Simulated assay, not measured.
Amino acid sequence: MKKAYILLASLALLAFFSFTLIFYLKQTSYIPKRLKDTILHTQAQILLQDFKELSKLFLYEAKLQGKDCLESVSLNYPNANDFIIIRYFYPLGKCENFKLTQLNTDANLSKDKLIIAHINILLNSQNAVNDEIFIQDTFTLYPK
């Protein structure tokens, strides 16, 4: 009878240790995923700050090419499945065929020009929804 209790106690102890080991392995496997998500989120934040400045450069380059306005700029950067989209909105006018048409006749587009830039950054888009990093920001440009 004593051997049966020892056998049951050893089986219970083995089950406890195996459960503890499995639980520990599951908890430690989430750290790389959290780290990867943190790295991607930091990368997206850096890209957002860089593309705020690049959105101004795109407008400047369009002006040098003789275009009055831009509607949007789409890029696949840093990977082929990552998307960065910059959309430009003109509250006092409308952009048609790279020309700014006046909607409000009382506004002076050369003096009161205002541009709203909306940036969307989507990283890691080919994976599951929980693995995607999506950051967006809107800011206003006051061109001279």
Rank of each mutant, 00 (worst) to 15 (best):
K94F: 13
I115F: 00
D106P: 15
L47S: 04
E71L: 11
P143S: 00
Q65F: 13
R87V: 12
N124M: 06
I86K: 08
G93D: 04
S18Q: 08
P32C: 01
S18V: 05
L25G: 06
P32R: 02
S29T: 09
Y5T: 10
R87N: 10
C69E: 03
I115N: 01
L25I: 11
T105H: 09
Q136T: 10
L8D: 03
F19M: 15
T38S: 12
S72T: 11
G66Y: 01
G93Y: 01
D68F: 06
F23T: 14
F98I: 00
I116N: 04
N130G: 13
T20K: 15
H118F: 10
S74K: 05
K111S: 04
Y60G: 07
L109T: 06
L59Y: 01
I46A: 05
I84F: 04
S18Y: 07
L13E: 06
S110Y: 15
L100N: 00
Y77V: 10
H41W: 14
N120K: 14
I85R: 08
I121G: 01
L59V: 07
E71N: 12
V129L: 11
K94Q: 08
K113Q: 08
A9D: 02
L8C: 11
S18N: 02
L59G: 01
K111M: 02
I133P: 04
I135Q: 05
L54H: 05
K99N: 10
Q65T: 12
P143Y: 00
I119V: 10
K111R: 09
F51V: 03
E71H: 07
K144L: 02
N97Q: 14
I85M: 12
Q27N: 09
L21V: 15
L48M: 07
F16D: 09
R34K: 08
L35C: 12
L40Q: 09
Y5N: 11
D137Y: 00
A62Y: 00
D37M: 03
T20C: 06
L8P: 05
I135W: 00
D50F: 05
F83I: 09
K144S: 03
L122K: 14
S29R: 10
I133T: 04
F134Q: 05
A128M: 11
Y90M: 01
N120I: 08
A9N: 02
Q27P: 07
L57H: 06
T101A: 11
A9I: 07
Q126V: 14
R87S: 12
S74A: 05
K56N: 03
S29C: 09
V129D: 05
Y30D: 12
D50R: 06
S72E: 07
N81W: 14
N108V: 03
A80M: 14
L25F: 15
D131A: 08
A62H: 07
E132K: 15
I85L: 09
K33P: 15
